[in-house]
Nucleic acid binder design. Sequence first.
RNA 1: CGGGGCAUAGCGCAGCCCGGUUAGCGCGCCUGCUUUGGGAGCAGGAAGUCGCAGGUUCAAAUCCUGCUGCCCCGACCA
Length: 475
Amino acid sequence: MSIKVTKRSKDYSRWYTDVVQKAELADYGPVKGTMVIRPYGYAIWENIRNIADRMFKETGHVNAYFPLLIPESFMKKEAEHVEGFAPECAVVTHGGGKKLDEPLYIRPTSETIIWSMYKKWINSYRDLPLLINQWANVVRWEMRTRLFLRTTEFLWQEGHTAHSSYEEAEAEARKMIEIYRQIAEDYMAMPVYVGKKTDAEKFAGAVYTYTIEAMMGDKKALQSGTSHNLGQNFAKAFDVTFLSRENKQEYVYATSWGISTRLVGGVIMTHGDDKGLILPPQIAPYHLVIVPIWRTAEQKKQLMEEVAKITHQFNKEDVRYIIDDNEQTSPGWKFNQWEMKGVPLRMEIGPKDLENNQVVLVRRDTGEKQFIPTENLFSVITGLLEEIQNSLFQRALEFRDRNTHEVDNYADFKKIIESGGFVKAFWAGDGQMEAMIQEQTGATIRCIPFKQDQQGTCFYTGKPSGTIAIFAKSY
RNA sequence: CGGGGCAUAGCGCAGCCCGGUUAGCGCGCCUGCUUUGGGAGCAGGAAGUCGCAGGUUCAAAUCCUGCUGCCCCGACCA
C-alpha cells in the first residue's frame, strides 16, 4: 500500500478517494455504488447528527420513523415528484418467493408515505403544526457514484412539517435552511451561500427550494443541504385537509428539508490537504491525540502515569482525546497516521518533556509546534481548539471569496468557469437561457442568495436586474 | 448511457506482445531479537482456484470469444 495520498494538485478526485480510504472513513460495498461507513467516518457523521438533532429539537421538532417500502401508487400521486424520482428508484417486485401484486419502491425520500399518514393524523388546525423529523437511509439509483458525495444508499435526515398557512410553511422552510447554515458554518467550519434554487434546480414537487452551497477545494460547488416549501402540492396529492378556525376545509401546507452523509464529503473537501483530512474540532471524533515517546519500559510507565495525571484534568466533553501508546508503531508513523485522520491537535510527551514539566502541542491545520508547561494544559488546549475551529472557517471563507468572481459579460463568465470558481453576477435570464449556459459551460445557478441589495445589468441578457445569482460547476 | 482504464496473495503492482521450470516484487501480516522525538533494522515464516465461463493447444496468467465487477472522464442527481 502506498503510504501517501495522491496530491490534490495532481488529481483532486483521486486525492479525495485516497483520503476517504486511508483515513478509514469508508470503504466500497459489494453492490455498485454502495458504501460501508467505517467507525471513524461514522463518528464524524454521528457528531454532525447529534448537533443537528439537538437543533431540531430546540426548534420544536420530534423524531419518528416511517417505513422503507412505499407502494408504487403513492409514488405516482404527485406528478412532478414521480417524474423527478421514478427513474432513480429501486423497486421491489418479489416478496416471500412470489411476485407482488403492487411493486414496492424503496424510499428515495419519504414525502409520499409520510403524507399518506398525515392524512390520517390531521383533521383540524388544532393538529397543526406537525413538526416531524426522521433519521433514515434512502436509496437512489445513481449512475455515477462517489464515496459520501453520491452513493446509491445514503444516510440522512428528512424533516416533514405540516402547517395551517402558506406563510407559516414558508417561515419553517427558511428557519430550517438557517439551521443548516449554522451547522455548516459554525460546526463544520464550511462557509456557505444561502439562497433559493431556480425552477430548474428545485426539488421535484416543491414550490420553492432553499439551499446552502459550499465551495470545495477544487472550486466546485457542493449542495450541502436543502429545505423546501412544498406549498399544498403533497396535501392535494394525498388529500390532506384541515378544518380552519373559520370552520373551512383547507389543504395543509408543507415543508421538507434534509442533510445527508454528503456533508462528510463536504468537510473533507473543504479543509483537507496533501497530508490528509483536517477536521474542525466541533465535529472531530477526537480533538487530541496523545503520543507518548519512550525508550525503555520504565520510561513508558512514567510517561503513562504523567499522561493519566494530565488527562485527569480534562473534562471528557471539552477535550475528546485518545492515547496512542501502541508499541508496534513508531512515533513518526503515529504522527503521519493521525494527521491523515485529521485530528486537530497532537500532544507529544517524552522523557525530555517529563524533566521539564512540559509537553509538545502540534496543530494539524498549521503544523505549528509549541512547548506548553503541563499546568494549565487544559485551558491552552481548549483555547487552541477554539482557535483552530475559527481559523479553519476563516481560511475556507477566504478561499471561497478569493475564488468567487463578479462578471458583467458572458465572455468573462466562460473564462472564470473554465478556470474554476464561482461566478457572482446580475441575472435576468430565464430557464432556457440557464439550460443554454449549462450546456455551453457546465455551470448551473447554484442559488439566488437571500441577501440582495444591489442593482445592475444582467451579464447574459444585458437587461437591468436587481438579482445576483451564484453560478458554478457542481458535484 | 457514451468514452477510457483496470481485474494476478490483505493492499499496490510486475509477468501477458513473443504460451513452456516451482508465478514474482514492494508494503502489510505472523515469530524472535534489537529499536522508538517525523512513516525503524535484521533473521525466519504464512499466504495465490492469476475476476468468471467457454474455446484453441501436448501445454494458457499469457492467445481467442463471451460475461461480470470496479475506477476515471462526460450527460442526470443530496
